[in-house]
Amino acid sequence: MNFANAAVGQYMPGESLMHRLDPRTKMLVSLGIIIVLFVVSNPLAYALLAVPIVLAIAISGVPVKLVFRSLRPLTFIMVLTFVLHLFMDPGEALFSIGRITATDQGLRLGIVTVVRLTLLVLATSIVTMTTSPIAFTDGLERLLAPFARLGLPAHELAMMMTIALRFIPTLLEETDKIMKAQMARGADFESGNIAKRAKAMIPILVPLFVSAFRRADELAVAMEARCYRGGEGRTRLRELAFSGEDLAVLIVAGAYTVAVAVAL
């Protein structure tokens, strides 16, 4: 098992309009599209909502194959929900396999769900693939800032995300190392049923957790030593800048999305 190329939706540096846009613009627009996606149920609306997503992918210059690869981890869930809808929903019978019957209603809802999930994943992937992790967490922090007054720990959430992103590769590397060490001692992770394989993971997870907690402890001390004291009074190397381009995109895309939601 190799975790090194596990990263789906990973940042692809570039200079396109999609890359230049403020992360807040990208997040707001994709959030708007996703909300409308789950509100409307008209097939034409899905086609219209797919337009800005396809456009964004085209502008970004990110290889289409890579964007679509982010769908792969969800294939199983999509197939499962489709099958469940097809056979479990009430409606006119289409065909039967043994005692279970597929319905027209089920087919329709199944397709709707798959289309929604596909567009959702594409809309989020194209944002994460054109936004550096730093810009992403900064954008999130700024977007959530208004809710900080209601007690939402906006800065802390963003900092947690940064640290998670920073340590994921480190922890994956460590997992790889531990697995190899256990395999060298004869551990077997590939054979047996699910229960047996899950049990084989315990000798990996225990040392991994122990080390993660030690890392967290040491990192906290290191951050304090570097004068970290929360988000207040903190400046940034790169301040986010909301440009004219952002305003234009936000207005056009926003109006388009709202129009689709209202009209259909």
């Binding site: 730093i134 920073r166 480190t170 040491e218 990192l219 290191a222």
Partner: peptide, 9 residues
Amino acid sequence: NPDNQIVAT
């Protein structure tokens, strides 16, 4: 530990 004192990506 060089790993446990680097915060950013």
